[in-house]
Amino acid sequence: MTHPRYTRLLDSLPATVPFVGPEVIERTTGQPFSARLGANENIFGPSPKALEALRQADAEIWKYPDSASHDLKTLIAAQNGVGYDNVVIGEGVDGLLGYLARMMIEPGDTVVTSDGAYPTFNYHVAGFGGVLHKVPFKDDHEDLDALIARAAEVDAKLLYLSNPDNPMGTYLPGATITAALDRLPEGCLMILDEAYIELAPAVARAEIAIEDPRVIRMRSMSKAYGLAGARVGYALGAAPLIKNFDKIRNHFGMNRSAQHAALAALQDAEWLAHIQSQVTHARARLGQIAQDNGLTPIPSATNFVTMDCCQDGAYAAKVVQELGTRGIFARMPGVAPLNRCIRISCGPDAALDLFAAALPQALKAAL
């Protein structure tokens, strides 16, 4: 009998995905969540202008999207003070990371990242046969010096750094990143994932010349702009690097209505300021909830707060499980020593009220 002839690489990969979504958990347990605080979504919602643009564009959903995302690229270029050819649009940062891995990684090529950093990047690297080298976080921050040193040791093609980072919510000053570029090994491209940058203090922004061939910056419309379900992200980089995306990207991968929603969202500065204010309030409240329950909140530059449970990973996992049985969707970092923590997304007071009520019960049940 005939059968598909898979690649040897595919046969070597585990049957896994980076995240188990809340919908999967709800179907498995048969219990819906009352507070969705585990996915770092913008629970406050997108700009009303973006929603209206989405509704209007839906009437023409029969059309293919603009394969060049011309209007969106033009606006992003103008807002960032770069050229049109310095911007590529993709299906979220996840999609762009996948395209970049396809462009750069052949079987056996080496890549450096932090142990516990964003797992979707690792998933894409493994999918193209890359070899991952990981360095631990240092004092709950990504250790840029160690990342660069390891990249030199293994002749890494890519170095992944998120700023602010997920899962701890911490950041490095932008000036630190800029100064470190001169120590980046020859032929190594830094991926600077800035998915949360709109929610971070100004000092976190790195001033890097757009045509610097050593860096590509990833930005997301899922966090501050509240369009996680629309899957819109963009990358900023040197024109020759950006041009190469056109060789391999899915030219009709962008949803047409999502393009219009993103365009409207980026132009609504008032709503962005509103979201930044709401997130600031929620971070402070989550920090207080943590302290009220004997946990230590880690100062956050994102739309979530990571809370140190001051015990081991097994205990933190039990806390997440117990929160789930009480209708609270939460997550935790995946590796020690980060996994001593739980991670809670910012949200409206009503959602945080539910978390505040469930947390002391979950902590007690986890003992």
Rank of each mutant, 00 (worst) to 15 (best):
V319P: 10
A228F: 05
R249N: 12
I208Y: 10
L241T: 15
M1H: 03
G169A: 14
G253V: 11
F33L: 05
E198W: 01
D139P: 00
T16M: 12
G334W: 02
Y196F: 15
R36M: 09
L323W: 06
L9D: 15
R36K: 06
G287Q: 11
R55Y: 00
A261H: 10
A50T: 02
H281W: 04
A301T: 10
K318W: 00
S345K: 02
E91H: 04
A317E: 14
A301K: 06
P348I: 01
L295G: 09
P119R: 13
K364H: 11
P48Q: 09
Q267M: 07
T296A: 12
P164Q: 09
L161M: 07
T16A: 09
E322K: 12
K157S: 04
A35N: 04
G116D: 08
A152F: 01
C346T: 12
G313R: 14
G129N: 12
L363I: 07
G187I: 03
V279Q: 02
G294P: 05
L227F: 04
N40M: 14
D94Y: 08
Y123N: 12
A179M: 10
A152Q: 10
A230R: 11
A15L: 15
G92V: 10
A126D: 15
L96G: 11
L359Y: 04
A39P: 02
P14K: 02
Y196Q: 11
V88C: 13
Y225M: 13
V82C: 13
L96N: 14
S257R: 14
Y171S: 10
Y160C: 09
P299K: 10
G253I: 11
G45H: 06
L227A: 02
A224K: 08
V82R: 06
K73E: 06
Q56S: 03
G129H: 08
Q291S: 07
P65V: 00
L189P: 03
L266C: 09
G229E: 06
I61Q: 13
L10W: 15
